[in-house]
């Protein structure tokens, strides 16, 4: 996870992966995703925003390689069909029998690396999320926000090219959520990582991302793509600026349109 160069402006980023003409059909007739095209560039912070049932989680699972598209394909830069990534789920998804450090060690452990050989990386990841003192604690001893930080540390620890986050802060209270949003942006600035972030919160998506993909349901599809032209770093100043309010209104309208659009296929 050593990135020194600043994230280049949006027009000049290298391609990381491309989803082309993706359809995903469940049980032969439930269309979860229809004709999704998305190019993800290195350094992008993309939010997938939409109502439930719009296929945003399906899209994430397809990118993660947990499912195969019915038609269409996902191609990573370099022609691979899979890539290394970190994932953060809606729940912290920690192993309760393992300490915080052991949980963060997991991605390495599954690659056959002993704890001692990657101890520095594990401790560095914990330091980045502000939990360097909690390595020996068990998950049950931590608050909801802290557990989520452990989950983020685990996603970061191997320095993956892409981090997928599936409504990671949806279950947290508003104050914790703001704090984690701020810290996430700081982390992203430090690590220059690429993030795809699923959310149903307009405010969160505008605050975090430089690209917002608005999705519609029944069938799940991309309805609009917006660019958030506000410079990073963003902090509390941005959250209270009129610019932020205007962007939120614009995004909100796009989401509203997406929800009123009628799909080509009746559900």
């Amino acid at each position: 996870m050593t990135g020194i160069a600043p994230i280049p402006p949006m027009g000049s980023r290298d391609k990381l992966l491309e989803m082309s003409a993706i359809d995903k059909v469940f049980n032969g007739n439930v269309v979860a995703l229809r004709d999704m095209n998305l190019q993800v560039n290195q350094g992008d912070f993309i939010s997938l925003l939409g109502p439930s049932g719009c296929g945003k989680s399906t899209a994430l699972r397809l990118i993660a390689g947990l499912m195969r598209p019915t038609t269409g394909r996902i191609l990573w830069e370099g022609g691979q069909t899979t890539g290394d990534l970190g994932v953060v789920f809606q729940e912290p998804t920690l192993m309760p029998w393992a300490t915080v450090a052991q949980n963060v060690w997991l991605p390495f452990r599954l690659r056959g690396k002993s704890y001692n050989s990657v101890k520095d990386e594990v401790l560095e990841a914990l330091r980045l999320v502000g939990l360097e003192k909690f390595g020996k604690s068990y998950p049950r001893e931590l608050s909801g926000g802290m557990k989520m930080r452990v989950s983020i540390a685990r996603a970061l620890v191997t320095g993956p090219r892409l981090i997928l986050m599936d409504e990671p802060f949806a279950a947290l209270d508003e104050i914790t959520r703001h704090k984690l949003n701020n810290d996430l942006l700081e982390l992203r600035d430090k690590l220059k990582c690429t993030v795809i972030f699923v959310t149903h919160s307009v405010f969160e998506s505008v605050f975090l991302s430089d690209r917002i993909v608005v999705m519609a349901a029944r069938p799940g599809r991309v309805s609009a793509e917006l660019t958030v032209n506000a410079p990073y770093p963003r902090g509390e100043d941005f959250r209270t600026s009129p610019e932020y309010a205007a962007l939120c209104r614009e995004t909100s309208e796009a989401l509203h349109n997406a929800m009123n659009e009628h799909g080509q296929v009746p559900a």
Partner: peptide
């Protein structure tokens, strides 16, 4: 086992043995 943890193991390419040893057996304890 927690289904999200199972997904996580799959994403990180865990073998059947790793899944049993690190995930299923502790869950079953």
């Amino acid at each position: 086992t927690d289904h999200n943890l199972r997904d996580l193991y799959k994403i990180y390419g865990a073998t059947r043995w790793q899944r049993l040893r690190y995930l299923q057996l502790p869950t079953a304890l």
